[in-house]
Simulated assay, not measured.
Amino acid sequence: MEKVVEEAELRVKMAQLRDVPLPTSNTSSQGGSSSGLGVGSNWCGTTSSDPKKRKANPIEKAFNNNLREQLDGEIARMFYTSGLSFQFARNPHYVNAFRIACSKTLSGYHPPGYNMLRTTLLQKEKNNIKECLQPMKRAWQNKGVSVCSDGWSDAQRRPLINIMAVCESGPMFLKAINCEGECKDKFFMANLLIESIREIGPQNVVQVVTDNAPLCKAAGHIVEAKFKHIFWTPCVVHTLNLALKNICSPVLRHPEVYEQCSWISTISSDAWFIKNFIMNHNMRLSMYNDHCKLKLLFVAETRFASTIVMLKRFKQVKQGLEQMVISEQ
């Protein structure tokens, strides 16, 4: 049993994260170790026992260049080890936080921990956002509000339904409901809309906006029967998307439309075949990238005007290649 315990403790010890020293700065590593990863290295990657270490000049000492490089290395490693996007460095709150923390009046400051970020500070920020949204909510009584709802999936493929309130003062996100394991019928959808209407106030709601799916249409009729002054409105973008889809992919049951628009379906299928042929073969994709700077857009079929967007990009690619051939000639 002691042997098993020792093996388990050894596995735990080996699985722990190691304290890798920071990169050695050019000014502090002259005459010393070039890697900064030796046995005599300290936490910042400089050699602590090197007798040939160059003394810092007065200017470097005045501006704390070594300490600045250590801080830059720690911040950079925070980004790398946590997988943070480099775009986060452009966040003004990120810059202001370090500027205030580095002021002389906050010497010895420690950043908030895990529990404080997820409890106290989160609740404080939530209350602040609610206070900032109060002027927009007060406008609902005078201008009225539209309740908009749509379904989507997150990165974990969980089905979500969001509820938004839109008025003249601007849109406001209310909530997102996880519908995993639920039967999404017209009654379930109608109950979500009715609950949101009651939270906003039925007297402030003018209409309910959803897409044109039969389920949403039936739920809208239930809401209209519940509240006589509220009417259901189909989404204009979804309506246009369905119209363009019928034009780009006509069916035989509408012979007049099929006769006039069948050529679009033929061109679209040829374009999809070319795109898939290029994107699914590495050699062809490499040849395409060498001769054209425009990327082939991968637009999902459920998105707005996906076929038209794809054909427009193919036309731009063709024009670019033609201009390149003319310039070479």
Rank of each mutant, 00 (worst) to 15 (best):
S103D: 06
S103W: 01
K104Y: 08
K104S: 10
K104Q: 15
T105E: 04
L106F: 13
L106R: 13
L106S: 08
S107D: 07
S107K: 12
S107L: 03
G108H: 02
Y109V: 13
Y109G: 00
Y109A: 14
H110G: 01
H110D: 00
P111F: 15
P111Y: 13
P111N: 07
P111D: 01
P112Y: 06
P112C: 05
P112M: 09
G113A: 08
G113W: 02
G113H: 03
Y114M: 03
Y114I: 11
N115R: 15
N115A: 10
N115T: 13
N115F: 10
M116N: 11
M116K: 12
M116G: 01
L117W: 06
L117I: 07
L117Q: 08
L117N: 10
R118P: 00
R118S: 14
R118H: 03
R118L: 11
T119V: 04
T119A: 02
T119I: 09
T119M: 05
T120D: 06
T120H: 06
T120A: 08
T120K: 13
L121F: 06
L121N: 05
L122T: 03
L122P: 00
L122C: 05
Q123C: 02
K124T: 15
K124Y: 06
E125G: 11
E125H: 08
E125R: 08
K126N: 06
K126L: 08
K126Q: 12
N127K: 15
N127W: 04
N128V: 01
N128I: 02
N128A: 10
I129F: 11
K130E: 14
K130I: 10
K130G: 13
K130Y: 04
K130D: 14
E131C: 04
C132V: 10
C132G: 01
C132E: 13
